[in-house]
Design a protein around this nucleic acid. Structure first.
Length: 508
RNA sequence: GCCCCCGUCGUCUAGCGGCCUAGGACAUCACCCUUUCAAGGUGGAGAUCACGGGUUCGAAUCCCGUCGGGGGUACCA
């Protein structure tokens, strides 16, 4: 058996976000794949900020992007904050580099200055559309005479630098997952390398930096496939070797449209605020477009790194399914140790409680409550929803809720009084003795159920539900004896008394 | 319009010419467990593998076409 690890070559990958907003969850999936490719091979994961669009720059988004990566545990080896041998990692600090290579392309005849105004381009495209032609730059400035150029320069006309793309033939690039993809050169126009403000376009800066930073594997979204042949042309003009390119399929909204806020696809950090666990998000994202085999669905961080193989990436778009995310989240919440659960749940609890109540919460008591409800939390946002009754002075509920199947206005007060009589005297307040006491009361009060085989057993249902509502104000709660044990004698007795009063008021 | 990518249960997917009367998971339904709700267990329903042609003894798997979905078509990324 050959040692497979010998075949693994360390790769350099990069996450190259543009600080024009707060990336949504699909963007981070790409980052996850890039990070995994690097970790799996013992390579490096680089964070490079593509801040070349000055108009759309959103203050604070660089910080938010980094916070998101950290939250998911996707730590980078090189980046704007930590530096590295290929810096700077902020494209706005690399402007001279792009200029240098753009000039080089002009010198060798592979690029040219274009003086066309945006108005003219706009008009040109409008006419092309009217004639039902593809909208493309008509290359007017590509064929300017040296005299015309000199005149434009003398006049001080603003200009951009465009790539002089091959006009005839085809361009083929290799997609790691899909194989060779060929575009007819007649469909590719002369893309802008450097904008009139001196900043590079995303496309150009990307090419230059991926090469200069020695990126071996470019993993990016499928929306870049149509730009890929142009990148290939520039690499070739510069005489550079092209990195391996992996286009991962898009993540779509449930209605197959592009992922947007209204479908629940929020900026990543919003998921943290909504009570999702990073391990759940990672696991969910991992399996959106990638699979290990037909069985394995839960991956620890180590297992992810160990088993990630970019050859198993898919090529068809995946739909973002919130329900599945919730399931993963519930799973990982159940996985939490009591201590970690408490740590994570506490802020959510305190935020959901009235201020005066929040101020009195005892950590140890809360810990016991959380453990009781652990298997019921789908997200941490459920914490206050399911557990607030443990903390308030007295839960509010409609007296009618106390009555139900097998429990009417006559029997309810009797049952509570019977319980009150014994619970006050209980020598120890544990789930075990509480269950015994509850059962004894049920039997004494004559709640009997006949099973299918004819045997008679105590019918816990009606009394248990009565007590459940009395102490919690709700019909769904953790197991009754366990819940009473945690609530403590004082609260339970107090709430039973309140229930009794409510029943009397009801009777009129 | 033009160019490109994609197309297996509602959803995420396994499958890479015979092991497939297509497997797993989420969701859904039923039952079990049971003091409620969950969690867990068992089982069911759910995909003529988008459709139509080929190739082959044999196709979800290869080829062509059609349709459908998506992306691109910016001095955005």
């Amino acid at each position: 058996m050959a040692d497979r690890t010998k075949d693994i070559v360390p790769v350099r990958t990069r996450y190259a976000p543009s600080p024009t907003g707060f990336p949504h969850i699909g963007n981070y999936r790409t980052a996850l794949f890039e990070w995994l490719a690097a970790r799996h091979t013992g390579g490096k994961f680089v964070l490079r900020v593509e801040d070349t669009d000055r108009k759309r720059l959103v203050p604070g988004s660089i910080e938010a992007i980094q916070e998101g990566l950290k939250w998911l545990g996707l730590e980078w080896d090189e980046g704007p904050d930590v530096g590295g041998p290929y810096g700077p990692y902020l494209q706005s600090e690399r402007l001279d580099l792009y200029r240098e290579y753009a000039e080089k392309l002009i010198a060798q005849g592979d690029a040219y200055r274009c003086y066309c105004t945006e108005e003219r381009l706009e008009q040109m495209r409008a006419e092309q559309r009217a004639r039902n032609e593809p909208t493309r730059y008509d290359r007017r400035c590509r064929y300017l005479t040296p005299e015309q150029r000199a005149a434009n320069e003398a006049e001080g006309l603003p200009s951009v630098i465009r790539f002089a793309a091959p006009i005839e033939g085809t361009t083929t690039f290799h997609d790691f997952l899909r194989g060779d993809i060929t575009f007819d050169n007649s469909t590719i126009d002369d893309m802008i390398l450097l904008k009139s403000d001196g900043y590079p376009t995303y496309n150009f800066a990307n090419i230059i930096d991926d090469h200069l930073m020695d990126i071996t594997h470019v993993i990016r979204g499928e929306e870049y496939i149509s730009s890929a042949p142009r990148y290939a042309q520039v690499y070739r003009a510069l005489g550079w070797e092209e990195p391996t390119v992996v286009h991962v399929p898009l993540v779509l909204a449930p209605d197959h449209s592009k992922l947007s806020k209204r479908h629940g696809a929020l900026p990543l950090l919003d998921y943290r605020d909504k009570g999702y666990l990073p391990e759940a998000i990672c696991n969910f994202l991992l399996l959106l477009g990638w699979s290990y085999d037909d069985k394995k669905e839960f991956f620890t961080r180590e297992e992810m790194i160990e088993s990630f193989d970019d050859r198993r990436l898919g090529t068809s778009p995946a739909i973002f399914d919130m329900t599945r995310l919730d399931w993963f989240n519930g799973h990982y919440i159940r996985q939490l140790t009591p201590e970690r659960l408490t740590e994570l749940a506490m802020p959510f609890l305190l935020r959901g409680l009235p201020e005066d109540v929040a101020a009195t919460v005892d950590r140890e008591y809360a810990r016991q409550v959380f453990m009781l409800d652990q298997e019921r939390f789908k997200t941490l946002a459920d914490v206050p929803l399911l557990t607030s009754f443990f903390f308030v002075e007295q839960p509010e509920y409609d007296a009618q809720l106390l009555l139900g199947k097998g429990m009417d206005a006559e029997r309810a007060p009797a049952a509570i009084e019977a319980l009150l009589a014994v619970l006050g005297e209980l020598p120890d307040w544990t789930a075990e003795t509480l269950l015994q006491t509850l059962d004894a009361t049920v039997t004494r009060l004559g709640y009997i159920r006949t099973k299918a085989d004819g045997t008679q057993v105590p019918d816990r249902g009606p009394v248990f539900m009565l007590v459940r509502v009395a102490v919690s104000g709700r019909k769904e709660t953790p197991g009754l004896p366990e819940m009473l044990a945690v609530l403590g004698r004082e609260r339970v007795l107090g709430r039973l008394h309140v229930a009794l009063e409510k029943l009397r008021d009801l009777a009129g």
